[in-house]
């Protein structure tokens, strides 16, 4: 009875605290608010963009080909008369989806591997860490380009290639955290109490590793989006008629002299989106680092 009452009270308190912390984060710097605003807008557009789009992103209308921006076509049209505003909106969903899948795969695989390696130690840890060293010792984009080229040009292969280059970062991050945590009292206590490795990972380690992983993810989202578009630009990623931003820019490249709007608007969309995620990630990292948080607090006053 009493426990129930405490729990009822605890949930809203936790929510209130989360809300207060979010408010503090947003007020700490105008750039934090800007980043969070851009990210929120992009996520909303990714979810509802198709409903808001005035035209079907793949609808051809040759009579309206290469029209400059107007009230009918806000971002103009391409050489096949497709409405670029609708295509850019559709591209928002692709970019967000792609980033979610790339980071989802690499975080799930990399973090778990890092936690297990850190916890088990010994030969397994040694092998895992040398393999991550090998991956990290190689420029990620070149490796991703080589893998994407090997698998053949397609958006799915690009996603897979980027997941392959992203996971080692998370393995190293998670292992480092686990090394610091595994001798701490609560883990030792759990061990003494007879908890299994899986229980310790899920119950004690994961929740301590996750905040740092979240910050890293927010910093990596922008990079994942940029790399996807760059690979599409090189012809290794999304194929026509997919309205991926990098692919739209590539298509518009040869028309840049006559139709400046074609590569310009998807580029602005991509740059602003990546800027939003980078601002958010950068702000989060500063916010979590207590030394820098002090300086931000001073900034407020």
């Amino acid at each position: 009875m009493i426990a129930g009452a405490v729990r009822d009270d605890a949930v809203p308190r936790r929510w209130r605290r989360a809300l207060r912390q979010t408010g503090g984060f947003l007020r700490a710097s105008r750039l934090n608010a800007l980043g969070a605003g851009i990210v929120a807008a992009v996520v909303l557009l990714a979810v509802f963009g198709r409903a808001l789009a005035p035209h079907d992103p793949n609808h051809l209308d040759l009579l309206a080909a290469l029209k400059p921006p107007s009230s009918a076509h806000w971002f103009g049209t391409d050489n096949l008369g497709r409405d670029l505003f609708s295509r850019v909106l559709a591209g928002a969903r692709i970019s967000v989806e792609v980033a979610v899948i790339i980071l989802g795969l690499s975080v799930a695989f990399g973090t778990l591997l890092g936690i297990v390696a850190g916890l088990v130690g010994g030969l397994l840890e040694e092998i895992v860490m040398r393999v991550t060293d090998l991956f990290l010792a190689f420029p990620a984009f070149i490796l991703a380009a080589a893998i994407a080229a090997t698998l053949g040009p397609s958006l799915n292969h690009t996603v897979l290639a980027l997941a392959v280059v992203f996971w080692p970062w998370y393995t190293r991050l998670a292992r480092g955290q686990v090394l610091a945590l595994r001798e701490r009292e609560f883990v030792l206590a759990a061990r003494v109490a007879g908890a299994g490795t899986m229980w310790i990972v899920l119950r004690h380690l994961l929740r301590n590793v996750l905040p740092i992983v979240v910050v890293q993810v927010s910093l990596d989202v922008g990079y994942a989006m940029l790399a996807t578009s760059a690979l599409s630009f090189l012809g290794l990623g999304a194929q026509p008629p997919t309205p991926e931003w990098g692919a739209i820019i590539t298509d518009g490249r040869s028309f840049i002299q006559t139709a400046w709007w074609w590569p310009t608007f998807p580029g602005i969309a991509l740059a602003v989106t990546v800027l939003g995620f980078n601002l958010l990630g950068d702000g989060l990292r500063d916010w979590i680092d207590p030394r820098l948080r002090g300086s931000l607090g001073g900034l407020q006053e």
Binding site: A230, F233, G246, T264, G267, L275, L279
Partner: peptide, 15 residues
Amino acid sequence: AIAGLSVPAFWLALL
């Protein structure tokens, strides 16, 4: 600084 890291190189080149 963050803008410099966020602008896609291929797009900036075209621009």
